[in-house]
Amino acid sequence: MENAALLKAIIDNAIDGIITIDGRGIVETINPSACKLFLYAPEEVIGNNISMLMPTPYKENHDHYIGRYQQTREAHIIGIGREVTGLRKDGTMFPFRLAVSEVQFAERKIFTGFIHDLSREKEAEEQLRDYAAHLEDLVESRTASLKESVMALEQAKEEVSSSLVKEKELGSLKSRFVSMASHEFRTPLSAIQLSAALIEKYAQPYDNDNIRKHVSKIKGSVGILTGILNDFLSLEKLEAGKIDAVCSPFNLVTFAEEITDELQLVAKQNQHIIYQHTGTANIVNLDQNLLRHCVTNLIGNAIKYSGENTFIEFNTEIAPGQCVINIRDNGIGIPETDQKHLFEAFFRAHNTGNIPGTGLGLNIVARYAHLMNGRIDFKSDVNQGTSFTITFQTV
């Protein structure tokens, strides 16, 4: 008696619904959780065929199985171990996972159904899909707006480059754009990036390839937009005189190896960044943040403008009175007619095609190098590659 009472208490307090039926499909017991799911009182279900809890086509199929049982006395229970749909008393339907076990009891067979409600899981999946689609639309809209603004700046520069007055007007236009971009894009981009990361985290239990694909697309687009925005903000700070070099001693080899490892992760297929240091000294006195921006930009360009299955050489050297950093690739090169304009803001070589960029990177690198008492030189041939060298005078 004590064991029977314990079993009844367990069934009555189970989170999932539990229903037992005989071989003809007649309900013998139903626990409180199942009553709550189907909105029936126990007396409304017990003694009736289980098909009363099934919508079409499950009901019709069940009636067919019962008819066959009456002829053959062989039971056939549908929905074992899979998702099915239940019919509530008020006519609404809900998804659940059904597991059925056969039990020999008192010289007869009874069948126990375990019902796990999937309503919340299905609603969460739908909300994640809707939110991912909303974020994708938002990123596309912001991208189009930012591209239009950048194109407007480039067109304005071409129209006013021949006049000093017009050049000042362009500077004012750029300053207004950067101010607008800082307020109008940085905050929503940060929110989109955070939301994408949260979606990726919350979607892990559902193992949905579509969600992963769209989240990856969102994060990639946000990364591109953030890079463009950072270029504009750096240029605005340089022109306003808000950036100064803060130099301190650090290990150049360790610094360069860290950058090499980071950028190797984003290199193209079979692109290899080969780093080598010359000399026994390894300590330099420079601004790490500004130098990191310079080296990352130059190696990033080498990755971007070189093909797969190529090598990118990254060399450092500390000699008496100077520090030399060299990045060499064998990419598309720079046309000779474009080389004199290479470090101008917003300028891009004519052979870059559809490769993305703002035309600000090399201008910023040259100005950062100058702040650290350095200069940048280059050599390039079309389809042969490009070599950039930054030389810093040291004490």
Rank of each mutant, 00 (worst) to 15 (best):
T260H: 02
G321H: 12
R73N: 13
E83T: 14
T296H: 12
E28S: 05
K242A: 15
R176L: 14
K122Q: 14
F392E: 07
R120K: 14
I78P: 05
F250E: 00
M372I: 03
V139T: 12
A106N: 12
S162G: 12
G361C: 03
L252C: 03
F378H: 01
R212W: 08
T187I: 10
F250A: 01
P205I: 01
I10L: 10
N48G: 02
L360W: 04
E121C: 05
P188M: 05
G357Q: 05
H64W: 14
P188N: 02
F255E: 04
G357V: 14
P95I: 08
A4M: 13
F185H: 05
R97L: 15
C247H: 05
L164S: 15
T92W: 06
L128R: 07
M52L: 02
A132H: 07
Q339K: 11
L371H: 03
P57F: 11
Q271N: 12
D63E: 08
K217I: 08
N210S: 13
R142E: 10
N289P: 03
D209W: 07
L138V: 10
Y368A: 03
I30L: 01
R129K: 12
M52P: 02
Q322K: 12
S161M: 10
G357N: 13
D22K: 00
T254M: 11
T20M: 06
A5Q: 14
I192R: 02
I334C: 08
P356K: 13
N363E: 02
G81A: 09
Y305M: 06
D12C: 12
V150E: 01
L146F: 08
Q339V: 07
P188G: 02
L37D: 03
G23F: 09
E317R: 07
E236W: 12
K109W: 12
I50M: 01
F177R: 02
I18R: 00
K379G: 15
I283C: 09
L37Y: 08
L6D: 02
G385N: 06
E167C: 11
P205L: 04
F346I: 10
H183Y: 14
Q393L: 10
E313Y: 08
E239K: 09
N210D: 14
I299E: 01
R212K: 15
G241L: 07
G361N: 04
R142F: 06
F250N: 00
S149Y: 11
P335R: 01
